[in-house]
Design a protein around this nucleic acid. Structure first.
Lengths: 356, 356
DNA sequence: GGCAGTCATGTTTACGTAAACATGACGTCC
DNA sequence: GGACGTCATGTTTACGTAAACATGACTGCC
């Protein structure tokens, strides 16, 4: 017993300036409270078997030192991170950010945090890289928000043992998928226009590589064909209002065009602008339906009839499915479709010359 | 020594079906490769001093077992998480989601992941709760995206030792703050309208509790007062297009109103709709300026003149500031302003009766 | 040919936590 | 009154990793 180290407190006040260590461990708290670190652990976790006076001493020591549990150690101990990873290409689209928000909110309610892994461009390398990082990341499972054809390529292998739920894809034969019922939404939109008396419906489609665009266009075509109506090739956009504008200019040039189904609201906005510039009145001359029901759609000129997507529900189901995988039995592949509903506003009406 | 447990390999192949443990540690790899776990560590981290043949054996063992490093153990070892937390009230607003995306992208480039902590309502309890969770969370620092008056309340204390950068607030006297130069943007907008010849400018303000709304309104008032123009009380909105619509209806009723500065683009959209419904032409009768320059603003009817915010730059500076704190010296309080610029489109023109 | 130096690799330890097990004080029951 | 149960608390250990230190084989030099 030569030298006794001073109890080396490591509260912030201990280190004069700059790089305060600030790491206070259970051992530090235990020392100050005069108990063992196991007792501190028991207090921290609310385990039974700690007498009230001891508990209070420990709590006092905790707050004096500013103790906060080290989640790395905790995760190491438990083998769980209580964190969900989300891989996506960007938050720019309303759908993605709304879905992510719902995932984050719902996950938080279940005690999980979410980690965002943005991948720059939808190349295989990038997605693979994201998965590699995910593997190293402190994550119990992954939600993959991929809206482009990519998972088809067998080269993109999700590491085995990684729990995953895919959004907005057709990988339902290989992974659990949660998706909006795109096809049904598109069907509602097209049927609505046909029921108003329009002879046929033109389509402003999203980009070819998008799953959602593909399914919306497919349903549009199907309904027209079932009804025996002419099917003009769809105009192709890239989801942006600007691309919708250019598609709208082309459609405005066709005097036979009386009804347009745009694959999202932003392109519909561009279509409205093009029609307006060309002097075609909406809905008197041309009816327009969008898809998404973004917050602004009700304020367009005129307010847009559109297909409402329940992004919050998509996010919620993702979390539920993923937590199910993490906690219970492994989930098989399959697609969970969230229903849509048509919101009728002022941009649709019977074609001119048709009453009621 | 009665019973000896079998050595319990835990490779995926070990567990028949269902709940595979799948935790493969360096020790497992080492065993298979016939080396020590330290050598595996060296290979995993690319440390020098491993002969090529050994390295290959280890790599082979790694891929056979599907080894992925355990980041909890790594974080525990290093005392760092390589993760940034982002506390926010929601991703619904364009600004927030764009900022978060920029933060995520830039952080990823620096080897950091981001963890999202949504707080439901902007109450002190919720923010405190988020910080408590943050403390327990695997995070090296925090970006606080708070756009409402809250940090004013001294009750909200950021735990000492937590690195933090605040966005969109006036807490610049206590914390490092990164913000868009709201005031200058608003000044540009109002000056633009005055220079076109408008006698004065009406304002559709954001909610009272918003910092950004406060600053935009303040600058609007300041410019008018400096120019000696009449200052009518601002209409009050809540950022939504709908609230802008109602404000627009009130303004449309005033024949003297020829120029409107809306505190964001969505409210401007609502104003455009209200003016259109009331038969006031834009920009012939009334000029409208927005704020944000969201993607759709160029497709409004008419295309909206607005103040462009560089959200990506805000996100980038947040990450830089935070990583600076984490790696180098602690940063003092202060506000870092990201400039804005006015984007002139079709919604502004000289008032009727004034030429050029 | 022996000895120091170099280099690949192995062993020990610590990071912070919490389960599992150990201890010891006290009360109770026959 | 002594054996035993109960209960608060302490001690040991393992989670997976990597720095620090240890070992031992081989090289080169005098």
């Amino acid at each position: 017993m030569i030298k006794i180290e001073p109890p080396r407190l490591r509260a912030a006040s201990d280190v004069p300036g700059g790089r305060r260590k600030q790491r206070v461990s259970m051992a530090d708290v235990a020392r100050l409270a005069g108990v063992s670190s196991q007792t501190v652990s028991r207090v921290a976790n609310g385990s039974p078997g700690v007498v009230e006076t001891t508990r209070e001493q420990v709590l006092a020591a905790m707050s004096e030192l500013g103790y906060r549990p080290n989640s790395a150690a905790r995760s190491l101990r438990y083998g769980r991170f209580n964190t969900i990873g989300v891989i996506l290409f960007g938050l720019a689209s309303t759908g993605n950010s709304r879905t992510v928000e719902a995932i984050a909110t719902h996950a938080a309610a279940e005690g999980y945090a979410i980690t965002l892994i943005p991948v720059g461009a939808p190349t295989q390398d990038n997605v693979m890289g994201a998965f590699t990082r995910m593997g190293e990341l402190a994550v119990d499972g992954v939600v993959l928000i991929i809206e482009v054809h990519l998972l088809d390529a067998s080269a993109v292998a999700i590491p085995p043992g990684v729990h995953v739920v895919v959004v907005d894809s057709d990988a339902g034969d290989r992974y659990p998928v949660v998706d909006t019922d795109q096809a049904d939404g598109a069907r509602q939109a097209v049927r609505h226009l046909l029921e108003l008396g329009h002879r046929t419906v033109r389509h402003v489609a999203g980009p070819v590589e998008s799953f959602a665009a593909e399914r919306r266009a497919g349903a549009w075509r199907q309904i027209l064909e079932e009804a025996g109506r002419p099917v003009a090739p769809p105009e192709r956009g890239d989801w942006s209002a600007d691309s919708g504008y250019h598609a709208g200019l082309r459609l405005a040039a066709d005097p036979d065009c009386t009804a347009i189904f745009a694959a999202n609201d932003q392109m519909a906005l561009g279509v409205l602008r093009a029609l307006h510039e060309r002097g075609r009145r909406v809905p008197a001359d041309v009816s327009v339906v969008g898809f998404d029901d973004i917050a602004d759609a009700g304020s367009y000129l005129p307010p847009l009839t559109t297909v409402h997507q329940d992004f919050a529900e998509v996010g919620r189901r993702c979390v539920d499915a993923l937590l199910g995988q993490i906690h219970d039995e492994p989930a098989g592949p399959g697609t969970d479709l969230v229903p849509t509903r048509l919101v009728i506003r002022g941009s649709t009406a019977p074609p001119s010359g048709v009453s009621g």
